[in-house]
Design a protein around this nucleic acid. Sequence first.
DNA 1: TTGAAAGCGATACCAT
DNA 2: ATGGTATCGCTTTCAA
Lengths: 335, 335
Amino acid sequence: MTSIDDVARAAGVSTATVSRALRGLPNVSDPTRERIHRIAEDLGYVASSSASGLASGRTHTIGVAVPSVSRWFYTTVLEGVDAALRAANFDMILYNLASRGGDRERVFHRSLLRKRTDALIAIGVDFTSAEREQLLSVGHPLIAIGGPVPGVRNIGIDDRAVARAATEYLIALGHRDILHLGGADDEGLNKRMPADRRLGFLAAMEAAGLPVRDEWLLTGRFSPIVSRGVMLDLFASPGPRPTAVFANSDEMAFGVLLAAQQSGLRVPDDLSVIGIDNHDMAAAFELTTLAQDPHAQGTLGAQVLLDELRGAPPRRSSIRADFELLVRGSTGPPR
Amino acid sequence: MTSIDDVARAAGVSTATVSRALRGLPNVSDPTRERIHRIAEDLGYVASSSASGLASGRTHTIGVAVPSVSRWFYTTVLEGVDAALRAANFDMILYNLASRGGDRERVFHRSLLRKRTDALIAIGVDFTSAEREQLLSVGHPLIAIGGPVPGVRNIGIDDRAVARAATEYLIALGHRDILHLGGADDEGLNKRMPADRRLGFLAAMEAAGLPVRDEWLLTGRFSPIVSRGVMLDLFASPGPRPTAVFANSDEMAFGVLLAAQQSGLRVPDDLSVIGIDNHDMAAAFELTTLAQDPHAQGTLGAQVLLDELRGAPPRRSSIRADFELLVRGSTGPPR
DNA sequence: TTGAAAGCGATACCAT
DNA sequence: ATGGTATCGCTTTCAA
């Protein structure tokens, strides 16, 4: 393995100069710099990240914590983060904080706190207060995306507002019998988000003077399959039926649409469905939704951290991301 | 930041002993070990990964290269990899090799080769021969999952066989007019996989003496939306229609199902659809598919690398993963 | 503009 | 079982 000494020797300069030249620092004459670059290339020299990390205290790496890597929102944020990191020549260590418990704690201890990363992005995760304390005590820049964590600045849409907007749209179409498909408080996931969206739903209903039936406050656990099952059950049982469904995510809305189709209900004539996200497949489903842009949120979050690592003054405040109603074919007036 | 010296001092032992004790190495008396553990805990000491990486040459990190993080197959493998890594206390650096080109090369140079990782898993990526050479020259354990890379051992299903099995099932149902929805050779993605599946399709058709129409060899670029668009076009145009579609992935099959539904075709009466994967949502779509288990493939791949890092003799051969026909409601005899 | 040399914080070998 | 110490490869003053 060729080291910086090899390059220095071959170039007839000191390691200090090689280091400066290769990192683009000033105070290296152009000819020298070029020669060093050429030689490094020839020798296939690449600096050891451990060594430079140890010497400089910076790892050029950002940690990204997600509760799962198989849900659209998270992966889309992830791609946004990745884009920003790549442009800045940073690497990304991915922490899958799926389950609370032993493993989770180990991850925290062994890695997050191990000077392995220069900063941390938490996507849709929730932390215990002990965890939060640890994180903050490390002193690294930290930002949350997609689910407010108390005491941590955050990037994300206004969950109450978006739910309210969705519900109000259904109401404006003339719906009175609206079912809300919420999310479960899965372990380790951020739980304020579904709670806020539910509040937004309730607020809109109340403002319109519409009754909310307990049996129409269901949970799809943010899963299409679960949502479909829940709706199939509902459609199969006797009793009144909603004319519209507001789902906390497009993925759950997909499940609703599939259940409707498989139950012989026509959309939107028999049932209107609205979601949140504008998932990649929403257009294919003709799903009306409140679109947000997780990719941009990820990029922005990464950018904030990168700026601060470059010396920018830390921003303390959270950032509200945009959302927008996108009308497609899954909604219409009640028949 | 407390360092190993602080712990050594507080415990009244040498740094060597602290290091041994904390890493669970032999030759430390039980009382000493316990005392050190306690003190380290109290002081909140966590070893610097850069320092230990530099000294030991091992980073306890595995690199995972994916072409995209937003496709079911990749993320599912990723979760499998993650599970194995977590159990072994390894971290994961994620390389998004989305596009070939400048960035890609930089990622290669700056990170993969920077002794940043102890081993590498390539999921569904394709490498240029230059890239392959570089990778192999680093001498790290390396394994590919989900798309054969020449010269690199691989874990994955037999693509020709799985495509053949899917096609043969349709033929056995009585279908003669079968459309194949393949994948495009996106930049940077593994291209042998779609090619092999196409060969499997063609082989099955030929073996059954069935004609293959050029205009029924379509591409859905592994995307539901694209696939839906392609099929909507087909359904809207005059001319003969296939009675069955074999899609290279469930995600494309979803697009086909949505297009069929939106074109007023009944499944499976008017159109049978079969996919590959057993995607999370396949059951919700009632999609017949050839199921594979990417999670297990990921875990296995990680395990192979971890074993070798622990000194196990390297295995040179590839591993064939299983697949299995899963019949659901999207297939039936032609009407 | 360049070089010499002192760290950075662990690991691992060799003594004891 | 424990300690002393050279070493890993780079960064970063401080001098020249």
